[in-house]
Amino acid sequence: MGVLKDLFKDYRFSVGFILICFLSFLAIASFFSPYDPIEWLQVPRDKAPSWSHLLGTNSKGQDVFWEATFAIRNSLIIALIAGLISRVIAVLVGFIAGYKGGIYDRVLMGITDGLLVIPLFLILVLVAMLLREALTLVSTGLLLAFFGWAWDARTIRSQVLSLREREFTLTSVLSGNGTLSLVSKEYLPLTIPLIFSTLINNIAWAIGMEIVLAILGLVSLDIPTLGTTLQWAINYQAMLLGHWWWILTPVILTILLLVALYWFSISVSEYLDPRMRIQRIGAK
């Protein structure tokens, strides 16, 4: 509990945390939605916000508020799948390449560099076009995960490389620790902040990427996400027709989500920064 108390002293953490709670609450609220997320013409079309429809209704005859709760939930699912799976790949590749070195390093970094130099966006568009209808939540997440780990694997590797040269590595080896326990006990605690901050950045990147793909119409538009909601609104010229509630809802939610993630990430990584942690340990 002391940890949270310390963290809440940082306003960026508090604001980020409250925003994320609020957005997760919206995502959970989607389970109690009175409407089906895909069905059209369930409510009167193009109504401005009112008590019966908090954020109005759209031209498809859907309630914007409840549609948005589904959009948040689905976008978060995609981003979490992308973020977590790409972290697993990045950590494994980074640690093995960094610690084992030699041939492992050369092969793994060869693959990583290969992924880094290909024009990522074009490939994503190409793959998305081919898979289009098959791009459900999970497969979009996996697709983004597959392209999202290379840079972070490199960062983690370079950190492990420098840790390997520190004397405590030798102490640990002399204490009889094998590779696995050495890496997990000695290196992981020192790389957690890095992994965590890359995780949050990756989640933010995945959310942004999903929106781009959706606006280009490259994902299955039936599933409401922040991106597809925006795509529909643009497609129906919501701005031109003065249906501001329809287009502003996903825009504002996206901005809130990205700001929250950003503040959350910098305050937590500052807290987890080994130098700060050492200071705190010393301060007790």
Binding site: R166, E167, F168, T171, L174, E186
Partner: peptide
Amino acid sequence: AVFQNPFETFNPLRKVEDYFFET
């Protein structure tokens, strides 16, 4: 072996006693 820099001999984020129990 014993090394040169006592401040680097142990991981700053781990308790010193951990190395003893591990050994």
